[in-house]
């Protein structure tokens, strides 16, 4: 029937793509189980707080998060710090303000309304510090990364609501450092990464076991750090994720009920047309 040509073309293309993914030599990051995935997903507050700790103690030395204000740490659906705690956290950072009445710029402790300050004042300063490499700002990194899922995977992903390609990649990247395979040469100042496109990344392996102390008993392993910071970065990129899914459920239920009512109404109305001339 008419569906046959469609299926024929589809199967040819499916085969073609699966071959190419392997050809490029770029392995796909493993899919992790995230608490925030799926239609009923929620962030794990403890995980977000641990992730934030990892950011402050490790990542923040090089990476900024200039789109995330300190007050966001207190908002519902996030790490769940109290206003007092967030104010204390903010107070540990210094931001540039001014000009004052003498026309000078000055530094002051950050407030809740300030964004998390970047470690470098601008892109050029960062590149100067890192020999030309620029540590990207992490505010939306979880949405700015992803990987290609071939056909028919991307069809199933639409049904599965797979939106975690970015965090899966970040988590894999952070622990995906290996020795360069025999015979490959790495550019000066780069490290061999299994998942980074092209394999040579300027960022050194960030984690060592026990580097960040976890006070809630969670094992302090690099894999755990990677998972926690990735979850935190997902929150940073999508602070309203929980509200979105919650409202989404309400909207879907409403629309399904409304569709049902409209269908019954339509049937009732059309029965008049079909019973008369």
């Amino acid at each position: 029937m008419r569906i046959l040509p469609l299926l024929a073309v589809a199967s040819v293309l499916a085969g073609a793509h699966a071959v190419l993914a392997a050809e490029e030599g770029q392995p796909l990051p493993p899919r992790q189980a995230w608490t925030f995935a799926g239609p009923f997903g929620k962030f794990d507050r403890g995980q977000l707080q641990r992730g934030f700790k990892v950011y402050r103690e490790v990542c923040g030395a090089c990476h900024g998060m200039k789109l995330v204000p300190f007050r966001a740490l207190t908002e519902p659906g996030g790490p769940g710090f109290t206003e007092a705690q967030a104010r204390t956290i903010a107070g540990e950072y210094r931001v540039t303000d001014g000009p004052n009445d003498r026309g000078e710029m000055f530094e002051r402790p950050a407030r809740l309304s300030d964004a998390i300050p970047s470690p470098d004042p601008n892109e050029q300063a960062a590149r100067a510090r890192f020999d030309g490499a620029l540590p990207p700002d992490l505010s939306v990194i979880a949405k700015a990364r992803g990987y290609e899922v071939g056909f028919p995977g991307f069809i199933f992903d639409a049904f599965k609501q797979y939106q975690e390609a970015g965090v899966d990649y970040v988590a894999a990247y952070l622990t995906g450092y290996e020795n360069a395979p025999a015979g490959t040469t790495l550019a000066e100042g780069t490290f061999w990464s299994k998942y980074f496109p092209g394999h040579g990344t300027a960022m050194p392996p960030p984690f060592q076991a026990g580097q960040v102390e976890y006070t809630d008993g969670t094992p302090a392993t690099p894999e755990q750090y990677a998972r926690d910071i990735s979850a935190f970065l997902m929150w940073a990129a999508e602070p309203h994720l929980e509200a979105r899914k919650r409202i989404g459920l309400q909207v879907m239920v409403f629309l399904v009920i409304f569709a049902g009512l409209l269908y019954l109404t339509k049937k009732k109305i059309w029965s008049r047309a079909n019973n008369h001339a």
Binding site: I141, Q161, Y162, G248
Partner: peptide, 29 residues
């Protein structure tokens, strides 16, 4: 109206559960 609401269910699926599925991650850079 009925068809519209069915179409909106599909729209809502993307808006609430897979809002970046049809886009490209590079546009968050």
């Amino acid at each position: 109206s009925f068809a519209l609401v069915c179409f909106l269910i599909l729209t809502a699926w993307f808006v609430f559960y897979a809002p970046n599925y049809l886009g490209h991650p590079d546009n968050y850079i």
